[in-house]
Computed example of a mutant assay.
Amino acid sequence: MPETTFPSTELTSQYTAQVASDLERNAKEQERIGAEIAALQEQLLALQHDHTVLVNIQKALGTADSPTEAAPSPEDAAVPSPRHETPAKPATGKRSRAKKAGTEQGSRTTKETAAKTATAKTAKPTLVELIRGHLTEQNEPRSAAEVATALGQTHPDRSIKTTVVRSTLEGLVAKSQVQRTKQGSSVFYTAADAPAQPETSTDGAQADS
Rank of each mutant, 00 (worst) to 15 (best):
P67S: 02
E42Y: 00
V55L: 15
H51Y: 12
S81A: 11
P74K: 08
I57M: 09
Q41T: 09
N56R: 12
S66W: 09
Q43L: 05
A70Y: 06
S66Q: 05
L54C: 14
S73M: 06
N56G: 06
K59R: 15
V79R: 02
A35W: 00
I37N: 01
A38Q: 07
P82R: 08
Q41I: 03
G62S: 12
H49M: 13
A39Q: 06
L45D: 15
E31N: 12
A35G: 00
V55G: 12
V53E: 13
L61T: 11
A46L: 08
G62W: 08
D50L: 15
E36V: 07
P67K: 02
N56P: 01
L45K: 15
G62H: 12
A77H: 10
I33E: 00
A46E: 13
A60G: 09
I33L: 12
A60P: 07
T52D: 13
P72G: 05
E75Q: 07
P82A: 03
V79M: 04
E75M: 04
H49S: 15
E75L: 05
K59M: 06
E75I: 08
D76K: 08
E75P: 02
A39I: 10
E36P: 07
A71E: 09
L61Q: 04
I57D: 00
D76L: 07
L47E: 14
S73G: 07
G62F: 09
S66P: 02
A35M: 00
V79Y: 02
A64N: 03
T52L: 15
V55K: 12
L47T: 15
T68S: 05
T68F: 08
L44G: 15
I33Q: 12
L54S: 14
H51S: 13
A78M: 11
A78K: 01
P80D: 05
A78P: 04
P67D: 01
D65H: 10
L40Q: 03
A70I: 05
S81P: 03
A38H: 01
Q48D: 14
D50G: 13
A35E: 00
P80C: 04
D65N: 10
L40N: 01
S81L: 08
E31F: 10
D50N: 13
A46K: 03
V79N: 01
S66D: 13
E36K: 12
E69I: 08
A71F: 07
P80T: 07
P80E: 04
G34T: 06
D76E: 11
S81E: 10
A70V: 09
T68G: 05
L54I: 15
P72T: 02
A64M: 01
Q58F: 05
Q58A: 06
A70N: 07
A71H: 07
H49L: 14
S73P: 03
Q48W: 14
E31K: 12
D65Q: 11
V79S: 01
A64W: 00
D65S: 11
T63M: 06
P72K: 05
I37G: 01
S73N: 03
L44I: 03
P67H: 02
V55M: 14
V53K: 02
